[in-house]
Nucleic acid binder design. Structure first.
Lengths: 113, 113
DNA sequence: GAAAACAATAGACCATTGTCCATGGTTTGG
DNA sequence: CCAAACCATGGACAATGGTCTATTGTTTTC
């Protein structure tokens, strides 16, 4: 599909899609037309964009996501890939823990008000 | 205490302490010396900085923290303050949920590798 | 009493994460 | 056929959250 449709269906703006693509988080291929150079975005970019959006919401950086993409798709070395992803999981759990603590603190504050 | 000691004990750099203070997240008072204008940072700034650091790690923005500070300390209106903090708690829980989902996804990816 | 360490202020600088704009070409609907 | 909508590229712009530097004055330490 073309970028407009992808944007429409994913809820991610064209600009952001291009930004992600420039940063290697998604991939498109040349379209089939001879008269233009419109890119073709395969269906599964929908899935990837959903993940990327979720991950960004969860607080992961573009750099984090690049690490994951590199690990899972460029991975000649399975062991290294697993380590990268395992590390990201740890970081996320750490962050979850921080959030829990802050929530507790805020709930205490609410009591005191 | 002076800013250097606060930085040392809190693990937050002078620059960042000043940045937070400029943005109203912490407060100092004039020192007692007549010959300089070094600020005096009360002991409880240690506690506040710990909270701020945690909250930043949890993904809260400076603006979020300003809202909380304004709600808790400038609060003439208790009800409004509670609403502000309640809203922040909701946002944090939402984020926690996002993180959980991303962790699940990454753990699935690990299986597949 | 001089050097080293510390403080205040102001402004420049930086990375990150988009978003917007200009330009120029292509496709499509009426 | 032609205007409106779409696409690609490149670069400018913006907000956020610090971080660094320069300058000038103060305190501490040897």
């Amino acid at each position: 599909m073309k970028i407009g449709e992808l944007a429409e269906r994913s809820g991610v703006t064209r600009d952001t899609i291009r930004f992600y693509e420039r940063n290697g988080l998604i991939r498109s291929r040349p379209g089939q037309s001879a008269t233009n150079n419109y890119r073709d975005y395969p269906e599964d970019n929908l899935f990837q964009l959903e993940f990327l959006t979720r991950a960004r919401d969860a607080g992961m950086s573009i750099a984090d996501l690049q690490d994951i993409v590199n690990a899972t798709e460029g991975s000649c070395d399975m062991e290294a890939a697993k380590n990268v992803i395992g590390a990201k999981i740890s970081e996320l759990k750490e962050r979850e823990e921080q959030i829990r603590k802050v929530v507790l603190f805020l709930e205490e504050s609410l009591q005191k008000l």
